[in-house]
């Protein structure tokens, strides 16, 4: 049986025109050759900073963007060949900002009922019953049904967003920064809810976030993206315990942690690069604390360094404390 979702060498580019009539055209490779695989019921965390292409990837999977290359197969069927409705029934999304993704003029009941009405799955009493069940499923009090979004708190709104996504009983739920607009205590509630739903409903979850702490908490596997490419992927615990890519390490070390107080951290140098003009070779090399000459010239490929743990780095097995060994040793490994 094929995997639930197979993404193979996916590309999504945006063409921008510079200023003026003769402005130079440039291409942003928002998603630049991403390959992913997601099994049924599995939670995959996609982590990276803003502009790394993780949200574009999510939108492409959802059918909101048309890919420029590569293929997406869902339940073994290419998404080019299936009806949009077929895909919508199976892939749903929880959006980042619960304040703007709920239509302000609709009641909560209506918002959650919309997908069922659109897909003609229920009407009348059956519709109301299913909406009530969904409201209960995501832990909302029944009384919210007749309120408007602005009468709800951020956490409650995000629960509404989840209920709306679950209405179609999808097999894959994409959560794009679904908790980053929430307070910590509420964020924890939503994370717990997502995990619980994932286990109870056998949902596959693609959890997209900039916060590697949050991602590793909910995911069995994670994929780290930098400038449109996956630079490391593997089981969440393994990656967290021993990252292969220096960028993964930088991300981990950037998360504030009181217990790390005073200890040295690995930091990225300078600012993220301009996506219109990506660096040569390894895109991370200008910021990489351990980069060598080879990184500037040669694009590293995603390779199998450990069982199930892949990284796109020439120095993947180097100890990540800035040791300065030469390049020959590395290629020998």
């Amino acid at each position: 049986m094929s995997a639930l979702l197979e993404v193979d060498d996916l590309h999504k580019h945006y063409r921008l025109r510079g200023r003026g009539w003769w402005g130079q055209r440039s291409v942003v490779r928002a998603v630049d050759g991403v390959t992913l695989r997601l099994e049924r019921g599995e939670a995959l965390g996609l982590v990276g900073e803003s502009g790394c292409g993780k949200s574009t990837l999510a939108r492409t999977l959802l059918g909101l963007e048309t890919p420029d290359g590569g293929s997406i197969r869902f339940e073994g069927r290419s998404i080019d060949e299936v009806e949009p409705r077929w895909l919508q029934r199976r892939v749903q999304m929880v959006f980042q900002d619960p304040y703007t993704t709920l239509p302000p003029h609709m009641s909560i009941r209506r918002i959650i009922a919309e997908p069922l009405i659109i897909h003609g799955l229920a009407k009348g009493d059956e519709l109301q019953r299913r909406v009530d069940a969904l409201i209960a499923d995501v832990g909302l009090p029944a009384a919210v049904a007749d309120r408007r979004p602005r009468q709800l708190s951020g956490g409650q709104r995000q629960r509404v967003g989840i209920a709306r996504a679950l209405a179609l009983e999808p097999s894959l739920l994409i959560a794009d920064e679904a908790v980053s607009a929430l307070d910590v205590s509420v964020q924890a509630q939503i994370l717990n809810l997502l995990r619980e739903l994932q286990e109870r409903l056998g949902l596959a979850l693609l959890f997209v976030s900039h916060d590697i702490g949050v991602v590793t908490h909910v995911s069995q596997r994670i994929a780290v993206m930098y400038l449109g490419k996956v630079v490391e992927t593997g089981p969440a615990l393994d990656v967290y315990a021993d990252p292969l890519h220096p960028y993964t390490r930088v991300l981990m070390d950037s998360v504030p942690d009181p217990t790390r107080r005073g200890r040295d951290r690995m930091r990225a140098r300078g600012d993220p690069p301009d996506p219109k003009d990506p660096p040569s070779g390894c895109a991370f090399h200008p910021r990489c604390p351990i980069a060598v000459d080879r990184c500037r010239d040669e694009v590293p490929l995603l390779e199998d360094w450990r069982p199930e743990q892949h990284a796109a780095c020439h120095l993947a097995l180097e100890p990540l404390d800035g040791a300065d060994t030469n390049e020959v040793d590395r290629s020998a490994t």
């Binding site: 059918g63 949009p84 919508q88 749903q92 993704t101 709920l102 997908p115 659109i118 897909h119 709306r164």
Partner: peptide, 8 residues
């Protein structure tokens, strides 16, 4: 766009 992703 949320509505679009629902298939509206």
């Amino acid at each position: 766009s949320a509505a679009r992703s629902l298939g509206a």
